[in-house]
């Protein structure tokens, strides 16, 4: 860019200073392994999910009578609709896989230790928001799995002390999962990623204050730090290349692996499918569903 334009901006906005502080001059441990790639990859997945989601929303209808058919319309009639939908549905799985690896790295290398506790806790908040977003997005295709998954999870709130029934009714806006539930889930599914974006920003503000952890678990001296750019921009992009190879294999060759066959049957409030299974990324939490209502049962008057 013309130096005069940059100087004009720099007098009014710290553009060059920001790039120097947070990118070209940002000190990063020189011994980071590929396990430190996954934060960047999670950020990439967030952007990919938002972009593909916006393009899906241009063709999707959040109406109980139209939702299922509008997804088929996307799959069959919209140009590259199949690709955008498979990017989004496979992307959900990829996002969770990346986030779980990111968390496993933090646990294994004790990245959450002082002074990075808030990295961990803002990450926990991000995980909760991600789970809520994924759960509400799963209702939108309005298939059998969508419907009964939402039925089971909203029923968990029946465990709320004293007012469980009222809370569930309020969440659904109907006596069962219905049109009102679908429309509000669509609204929140659209909104939450932008909340996630905001919390990711806080996550990064904290990161750039406490700096990255590293595999030794020690705080490195300045001579063991290298600038983020070009060393880690190129390493992150290199990792992205490998990730995209794996991701695209699933998108193009195994996209239905992450879509239950039963979800290609339109939602039927009068018939539960014989086998209800959550998405793989919710499996660790599934057993707690069996426990949840009973722990609180005695609270009900």
């Amino acid at each position: 860019m013309d130096r005069r334009i940059v100087q004009w901006i720099d007098r009014r906005f710290p553009l060059t200073a920001f790039i120097k502080k947070e990118l070209t001059g940002y000190p990063t441990p020189r011994n980071l392994t590929s396990w430190w790639n996954f934060g960047f990859l999670a950020g990439f997945m967030l952007v990919l999910q938002i972009v593909s989601g916006i393009f899906l929303a241009m063709h999707y209808k959040a109406d109980a009578g139209l939702a299922f058919d509008s997804v088929e319309h996307i799959m069959r009639e919209v140009n590259y609709g199949w690709l955008i939908r498979y990017l989004h549905s496979t992307g959900a799985s990829a996002f969770f896989a990346i986030v779980y690896i990111h968390m496993a790295r933090s646990l294994y290398y004790a990245s959450y230790h002082e002074p990075r506790e808030l990295m961990w806790w803002s990450g926990q908040l991000l995980l909760l928001l991600l789970m809520a977003t994924a759960f509400m997005g799963y209702l939108l295709p309005w298939g059998q799995m969508s419907y009964w998954g939402a039925q089971v999870i909203t029923n968990l709130f029946r465990a709320t002390p004293f007012i469980g029934d009222e809370v569930v009714l309020w969440l659904r806006g109907d006596f069962a999962i219905g049109d009102a539930t679908l429309t509000r889930f669509f609204v929140f599914h659209f909104l939450f990623p932008f909340l996630i974006f905001g919390v990711v920003f806080l996550h990064l503000v904290a990161l750039h204050y406490v700096k990255s952890s590293n595999p030794t678990g020690l705080e490195l001296s300045p001579k063991d730090q290298i600038p983020f750019h070009p060393y880690y921009t190129i390493k992150d992009l290199y990792g992205l290349g490998w990730f995209l190879i794996v991701f695209c294999y699933f998108v193009f060759f195994q996209p239905e692996l992450f879509i239950e066959p039963e979800n290609n049957v339109p939602a039927n409030p009068l018939q539960t499918p014989p086998h209800i299974v959550p998405e793989w990324y919710f499996l660790p939490f599934t057993p707690s569903c069996a426990l949840f209502p009973t722990c609180w049962a005695e609270w009900r008057p």
Binding site: S52, R76, N79, Y80
Partner: peptide, 22 residues
């Protein structure tokens, strides 16, 4: 990388054109 990005952008741009039922 630029060519890849342009190729990846195409399906998204194309999806806004009239769909086959239109």
């Amino acid at each position: 990388a630029g060519a890849g990005l342009a190729a990846a952008a195409w399906p998204f741009i194309s999806s806004m054109n009239p769909s086959s039922n239109v």
